[in-house]
Write a protein that binds this DNA or RNA. Structure first.
Lengths: 233, 233
DNA sequence: ACAAAAGTGTTAGAGCTACACCCATGC
DNA sequence: GCATGGGTGTAGCTCTAACACTTTTGT
């Protein structure tokens, strides 16, 4: 009975978070330098606490670094190779999150030595964190092609050209702006505001926001322009 | 330094497998009655051993029950609610696998009291195993719509009508046979054999098999007839 | 007046859906 | 000869991809 439980080896259980952000130009990942291996960049991580669910713990970890709550958070994968952590055997459940970079308080950075890195110019990472980032990027590409999650990376109010730049950054490609805006608007997920964005272009672009009633309900197919080689999950 | 590791609580780490099979009529899940709660049906599961990766462990568990190796196996999700296992806190990583039911040796069943259940008529399950099955079904539907994994549930040689019945079972719906076979054949993933299936219908249907060179390479979009409400992951 | 980005429409082709009839065989 | 399941073709429609010019405004 209970012997079956007591005879088992327990393991350390960590969580690691791939935190994506978009600064208007490129897709970024937030990395830190932490404790043991303070010379190597790594993902923000932490240990599972006795009364937390995995998701609670992942939330807490993102909050500790960014000060943000209510961010988009999704379980990515459990990494459990016996040799992945050379110090002790540790299973790590990786989560990825999408944050609105404009809400991120850079002030917390120095506690953790955090820095944004372009996904195309990552430094060498601790343990298997490089694999985690690769997988997270694949998953983000896969998912953003079919579900309206891109908005999580933009401010509350944004323009169509901003959204296009975001998708171009995610897929590292370019889209035709006429086809792009037609497809986005045909989803009816966006509400056009009376405001225009100032300062970036002379003419100014209309601001939009997600109309949240539809956002919740539409977990159906969203966009179909997945650049083919990127599908895999 | 190492203190950081030593101060942490370890947890028991289990694996649970959702094993799908297709018997020509309906989509089935393989359930067992095991140890502690021998009155409740549950998923086949086991504990992570010190030298195994998560995937190794999941493989082993599927092998122990079915005697099969080289089955399709994919990590589904890590379940870690503090109260999910009332006996001890346990984190479980769930995997789902697709097996060719004709290769499954039913002889092993009585060791584990295994039985196939229709996914639409499941008994009450242990712990959160019901959630696991629900999620696995969602994932299977999501994935099979875009990736050619359905074949994993069929014998090496199969007919188009068999394949159609499988997809109809997965999505619990019906497809037009003309459109179905056109779409399947247009992927060029199948090789038509000179043999016909005998015994099931009077006329007999041509047998096909997956041409495996293309199967490997084509992790691109596959089919587009995802019944809309089922997308979510 | 010009530079820089925003905004907008059309056309040809591909892919999708819906639909009905003949074929081969065992009884 | 008939019942059962297997196999095939077409027409209308929708969606997609490709493509260029006009508008606005700050300097």
């Amino acid at each position: 009975m209970l012997d079956q439980y007591q005879q088992q080896h327990p393991y350390l259980l960590a969580l690691d978070s791939i935190i994506f952000g978009f600064d208007g130009e490129g897709l970024k990942v937030l990395l830190v330098k932490r404790g043991i291996e303070a010379e190597t960049w790594s993902l923000m991580g932490g240990w599972l606490q006795p009364n937390e669910s995995l998701e609670d713990a992942a939330c807490r970890i993102v909050f500790d670094l960014t000060g943000l709550t209510n961010v988009y958070l999704e379980q990515l994968y459990a990494f459990g190779n016996p040799t992945r952590d050379p110090i002790t055997r540790t299973v790590s459940v990786a989560y990825f999150s999408l944050i609105k970079i404009d809400e991120f308080e850079g002030t917390l950075s120095n506690t953790f030595q955090a820095r944004w890195f372009s996904i195309y110019e990552l430094p060498p990472l601790l343990f298997d964190h490089g694999d985690m980032v690769d997988l997270a990027l694949k998953r983000l590409r896969y998912k953003a092609a079919q579900h309206p999650i891109g908005f999580e990376l933009l401010p509350e109010k944004f323009t169509i050209p901003q959204l296009q730049k975001l998708y171009e950054a995610i897929y590292n490609t370019e889209f035709d702006k006429r086809n792009f805006s037609r497809k986005i608007l045909s989803t009816n997920l966006l509400t056009k505001l009376d405001e225009k964005q100032k300062g970036y272009s002379r003419r100014g672009a209309y601001l939009y926001q997600v109309n949240s009633n539809k956002y919740q309900l539409t977990h159906n197919a969203f966009l179909n322009f997945i650049p083919s080689p990127e599908l895999s999950l």
